[in-house]
């Protein structure tokens, strides 16, 4: 079971996880969009991997998204207590990210609508089911 907090965690400098931030009460994904081809990413690299453009601008995405797929991991992994639910989420107009799911230990059906909701106790991005 994934816990949920809306207090932004301290991020270590090299934390590779997708970065969420709260803007006007909404939880959004921070990333970048290519100024030439529009390709969105959850990171902010110096070149666009699609078109090679240098015009990469910081962007925010969300808070809504759609589940590509989901699972419940039930084996122990370091620093976390199983079971916990994971999903690949296509953030609206944005990139696909991995996130933890707040709710019962049950895989979400692909196509489910979710909303970026905050962070787990370990600082992982968390989504919650929003639609049917």
């Amino acid at each position: 079971m994934t816990s949920l907090t809306t207090t932004p965690p301290e991020r270590a400098g090299a934390d590779p996880r997708p970065e969420l931030a709260i803007h006007e009460g909404r939880v959004l994904l921070t990333g970048s969009r290519c100024g030439d081809c529009g390709y969105p990413q959850a990171i902010n690299p110096p070149r666009c991997p699609i078109c090679g453009s240098h015009a990469i601008a910081t962007a925010t995405f969300g808070p809504k998204g759609t589940v590509f797929s989901s699972t419940v991991l039930r084996i122990p992994v370091p620093d976390r207590t199983p079971p916990f639910t994971l999903a690949y989420v296509d953030v609206d107009e944005g990139p696909r990210i991995l996130a933890h799911v707040d709710g019962p230990d049950e895989a979400l059906v692909p196509g489910s609508e979710v909303v970026l909701s905050g962070w787990s106790e370990h600082g992982d991005p968390v989504v919650r089911r929003s639609g049917p």
Partner: peptide, 22 residues
């Protein structure tokens, strides 16, 4: 980015299986 979220290898295949069932 995924591994730092506790994403062990069975999870990717679990997700593929969920998607294939759907």
């Amino acid at each position: 980015p995924d591994g730092a979220q506790g994403y062990a290898m069975p999870s990717i295949y679990g997700m593929s299986a969920t998607r294939y069932k759907y």
